[in-house]
Design a binder for these strands. Structure first.
Lengths: 234, 234
DNA sequence: GCCGCGGCTGATTCTAGAGTCAATCAGCCG
DNA sequence: CGGCTGATTGACTCTAGAATCAGCCGCGGC
């Protein structure tokens, strides 16, 4: 998987075949626009300007293609998140850093992010790696949050694992909002505001500051008693 | 969709065919365990204990089956959310109410919720209704949040639409965490804690109270700087 | 020049599985 | 009772589209 045979295409060094990359790129675009299940290999080949069979020359099957798209995109993102999560800084800085990494990834390659989010993070019969990798990122953040909790930066009653998941939920939903056109990705200023709201919502919540009197959400405080006019079901 | 022909099966009143409901139920179960794409109509028929062809007697095709599963489940959920969002109460109460509705739905029928979340909210080539319906719920919450903002319950710099999306992102990710086994759905106490953390994270954030000194999440709007140190009251 | 090798081609094969349909069955009505 | 209607059956058809394969083409080596 590293240098193939540099034989004829060798002028560039031990590079992965140019064609292979073209196909991968086409796959990202096609998956992004029609979805994994909604497209045929022929579409990918056409988009890449390449013969049908060549796709199978470079990839064992359709699933491996998706898998590769995933790994390629995810590993870069994951490494950046790790750098932030395990680096120096306050919890606030790290959370802002992680959202920034995510938004930057989106700015650079929205299609790839879309595929990652829509086709992979949620894939049904998902093969091993996908969900596993997602879990890895969550675990990374869980550790970050645990450390922050030990340092008193995080509320003590918060479960770090769930909180880590929620952080990614926030980011993901932010992207979904982008994909749905709720924010214009062309406007950097709006993007930055959205990013800040996502990080801020996670860190500080959305409530106006003077609206919550005391430790409002921790234990069994029932000070706000009748909140359950809901719960019923027939 | 209402009373079919009550002709002969009329002894129960204008009820929807028993068989039809059996099939729908089976579809929920099968979709939940193998995914929409990962199952065949034959699986649904077998699960329902019914002949293959009968599925097509009651449903035009596989997609209509999914659509029906969706509408059946979603409309109930949506109505409850609306009741909360448009009802009386503070923003806090409403947010807690919405999460409660969601968790209650999960408690009653985890499989149906799983299908709704995994197969529909994210469906790629999703037919009209699905994403539309999801957007409807977000819009509902957006209006709720706008009202709250006008009343000063919500930070002024928050975008209600994005915030509404994030609320659902939180809930959805909470469920995903459930599906992934990060929380034991059998333990009502843990479930309630998770629910509270989801609502709480959205409302108040995760940061320890005395950790954010000044207008922390919107640099340029220092206008709210004054109220920033309210929080420390513990 | 011509051999052969590997990237490359696209028509062909093969299969899962959606959707069809002719036949059967069960109850009702005249 | 016998014919009518609608529910039910499952074998069969048919298609999309994944995967295969028998070769082609251009280049470098001999």
């Amino acid at each position: 998987m590293s240098q193939e045979q540099g034989s004829k295409a060798a002028e560039g060094g031990p590079r992965e075949s140019e064609r292979r990359r073209t196909i991968l790129r086409a796959a990202v675009d096609v998956f992004a626009s029609k979805g994994y299940h909604g497209c045929r290999i022929a579409d990918v080949a056409r988009e890449a300007g390449v013969a049908y069979g060549l796709v199978y020359h470079y990839f064992k099957n359709k699933d491996e293609l998706l898998e590769t798209v995933f790994e390629t995109g995810w590993s870069g993102f994951f490494a950046r998140v790790r750098a932030v999560a395990q680096g120096e800084g306050t919890l606030e800085q790290k959370v802002h850093g992680i959202t920034t990494v995510a938004f930057e990834a989106y700015r650079v390659d929205p299609r790839a992010v879309k595929v990652l989010i829509v086709e992979i993070a949620r894939s049904p019969g998902g093969r091993v790696n996908r969900q596993t990798a997602f879990m890895d990122a969550i675990q990374l953040c869980e550790e970050m949050l645990s450390r922050a909790q030990a340092a008193g930066e995080l509320r003590p009653e918060v479960d770090p694992k769930l909180a880590a998941a929620l952080l990614f939920g926030n980011i993901e939903m932010g992207f979904t909002a982008l994909v749905f056109g709720m924010v214009d990705p062309r406007d950097p200023e709006k993007m930055e505001r959205a990013r800040r709201q996502i990080a801020g919502s996670f860190l500080y919540g959305v409530l106006a500051r003077d609206a919550d009197p005391e430790a409002p959400w921790s234990k069994d405080q029932e000070k706000s008693a009748a909140r359950s006019k809901v719960a019923r079901r027939s």
